[in-house]
Structures are given as C-alpha cells and as structure tokens.
C-alpha cells in the first residue's frame, strides 16, 4: 500500500492505496465521490473524465499514485456553491442534454474543458470532434452539442455566431 495525497475539489485528501488502484477507484471507493463513473474498460467512453491540474483526463486510465500531488476536480466540485450551478451544468439541464445521467458527469467535465480551450470560437464540428472520447447512449448527442454551444456562445455575450444547423 502506498500513501497518496492530492487536492480534490479544493480539499487536501490523503489515502492509502494499492499501487494498482485507479484514480477513479480512489475517488469513488476511498473518497465516496461517486459522481465519477466507469462505463468501459478500454478508455473510450469518458464517463470517468475529471480535471487533473486543470485539464480533462480519464480517471480510469490513471493510477491514483500517478495523480498524487496533483489537483483534481470532479463533477461534485464543479459548481461554485451548493445552491448554484456551473454554467455548463445549467446548460445541460436547460437543453435536456442528459437522460439516464450516467455519462453526464464525464460529458460535463469534458465540455467545460472544451469551452475553456476554444471559448466562443467553438463550432458544431469542433464540439462533435472533441466529444470523440465520450459516449452517450441516450441523447443522440443532439442536445449535448446544443448545451455546449450555448455556453460557448454565451462567452461572447450575444447570440451572434449561431452555428447549429438544425432545430
């Protein structure tokens, strides 16, 4: 067993884990942060996406020991307070960008990272491109794409640049 310590959602945490423990297992089993999900074994579905030192990563493809010393943000740590939502969380709700909710935490963490990198320049093609590592079986992605674009567009403060072709 190895001691790990990291900042998770702004809080310093420590734990003792087998070296083979994945970050997602540490988050779920040791810290009880069950918002981060596991949907595949092959690093493809993205249900486990968290931010590691500010960047979206797959917590199922990272050992907890690799993340030791880093800062991790999970879906539970995204909202600014218990009563407020992060704009991306709000956009997913307003656009009906989720159904069963299982892929949603990873989708939102990926989306936040995406908008942070592209800002208002984000267009539909880029959104779809960058969702390559996140699989949703419920929504057909339609409303997820809309939600992400709505946040990106709000960053330039107007409805200008409407890039969705349909609906």
């Amino acid at each position: 067993m190895t001691d790990v310590s990291m900042t998770v959602n702004g809080r310093q945490v420590t734990g003792s884990v087998e070296d083979r423990t994945l970050l997602v297992q540490f988050l779920r089993d040791n810290l009880g942060l069950t918002g981060t999900h596991v949907g595949c074994d092959t690093s493809q579905c993205g249900a486990c996406v968290v931010h590691l030192d500010g960047q979206a990563v797959k917590s199922c493809t990272l050992l907890a020991v690799q993340a030791s010393g880093s800062s991790v943000t999970t879906i539970e740590g995204l909202a600014p307070s218990a009563t407020e939502l992060h704009p991306m969380q709000a956009a997913f709700r307003e656009n009906h960008g989720l159904q069963c909710g299982y892929c949603t935490p990873g989708m939102i963490m990926t989306a936040v990272d995406m908008v942070a990198r592209h800002g208002a320049e984000l267009d539909e093609k880029t959104v779809r491109d960058e969702l390559d590592g996140n699989i949703c079986r419920c929504t057909g992605y339609h409303n997820i794409v809309k939600a992400i674009l709505s946040v990106a567009q709000s960053m330039q403060g107007s409805g200008e640049g409407q890039r969705i072709a349909a609906e």
Partner: peptide, 9 residues
C-alpha cells in the same frame, strides 16, 4: 490523436 483527455496525458 485519440480524444482531448488522451491528448492531455
């Protein structure tokens, strides 16, 4: 290469 999360690591 891969997807954004893969490219970050």
């Amino acid at each position: 290469i891969g997807d954004p999360a893969v490219r970050h690591m």
